[in-house]
Design a protein around this nucleic acid. Sequence first.
DNA 1: ATATATTTGATAATTTCTTGACAAAGTATC
DNA 2: GATACTTTGTCAAGAAATTATCAAATATAT
Lengths: 214, 214
Amino acid sequence: MQEKGISQAVIGRLPRYLRYLGDLKERNIERISSQELSSLMNVTASQIRQDFNNFGGFGQQGYGYNVDYLYDEISKILGLDHSHSFVIIGAGNLGKALGNYLNFERRGFIFKGMFDKNPELIGQMVRDVEIRPMEELEVFLRENTIDIAVLTIPKTGAVGLVDTLVDNGIKAIWNFAHVDLDVPKGVQVENVHLSDSLMKLSYNISRYNDSKEN
Amino acid sequence: MQEKGISQAVIGRLPRYLRYLGDLKERNIERISSQELSSLMNVTASQIRQDFNNFGGFGQQGYGYNVDYLYDEISKILGLDHSHSFVIIGAGNLGKALGNYLNFERRGFIFKGMFDKNPELIGQMVRDVEIRPMEELEVFLRENTIDIAVLTIPKTGAVGLVDTLVDNGIKAIWNFAHVDLDVPKGVQVENVHLSDSLMKLSYNISRYNDSKEN
DNA sequence: ATATATTTGATAATTTCTTGACAAAGTATC
DNA sequence: GATACTTTGTCAAGAAATTATCAAATATAT
């Protein structure tokens, strides 16, 4: 499986493919053509074939794609065939929401720890994980192998935390703080900037209303 | 201000510009050149100028851009110069997190109502909004002018709710349910698929580790 | 007031991404 | 087993997005 220089645009589409393939699996559908998937997903069949072919041929001429096989292959590409441990830093509603979301576990994302600086929250349980004080974070990271840190704290705290995380073995940050994090090469950051998303929605509302008036 | 056929790629960058301009405002910086902003934000100066010029010229040769003016103009483009009311449907941790996030209010997004089907949650307050039973949603939407529905419920519920929302005046859906919603033309949907985002992170972790081994 | 430096806005060049087209390979049918 | 049909993988064309370039406009320095 050759995988060099795959664009993030392609990667960004893979989870959606996986979701539709999962639905097909549940409906016990065994095979699917790019054409069928195309009309299901509202993307061109050509793009589907092109996307899959970035990773080698998963289909068969005259037949299409085997749903189970394709599902597994895309899972592997996305690294979902082995598990990732994570801690959540910031035990507000957002942190708790993510900690409670069981689907992550099903995908191999294992919830290992949760930290907050608010003394009132310490000791509370989120699923089977106890909220610990921030002071214990560093030791915890050293004594456990944690892949991903989920940052659900305000931006002021987030920036100062990066070094601690990276120095103690964190390989990836899922960043919900509204700030761009500066990390060393090799550390992955995925931003979820909710207010950016809301602003895009706002733009599209306004644009549509304007275009109606003209 | 001419605004036709602006790509979503450009729109997607505007909130980030706005964030950096806000920081500059706070630091009382009055003017900035595309070159300076470029090195601050790690994008090319050319892209910055190109992006801004989609909406007309905001800068001045030999001077650069006036920070306050540019900030205001981008705010207007994003529709942040007038307010949007929203309701949250689904009062789990995620819904509560969004309801409690005060920054939305500052941008003119006004939290008007919250709904859940779980009887135990009814009557609880999230900020100054009371959680109501789902049965009251339709009447509420008819009696109040609500622009945006925020869907923080599981996908099974989300799909069936779209018609109710649209029929009662909702113009936009901020969708956190892990499903693609089918809406009539003119209704805007902005998806936040958190697990997709996490999978992208997973891909990038795996890819980096693989490239180290080769 | 003049000369020099800066910086935009616009256009052109380049690169990336998406879509179209079709031969080759397989499946299904008779 | 031969024929017609389906569908991929690949390559080429087209479209879109990004980056480079530069004249024109303005600011700053002398």
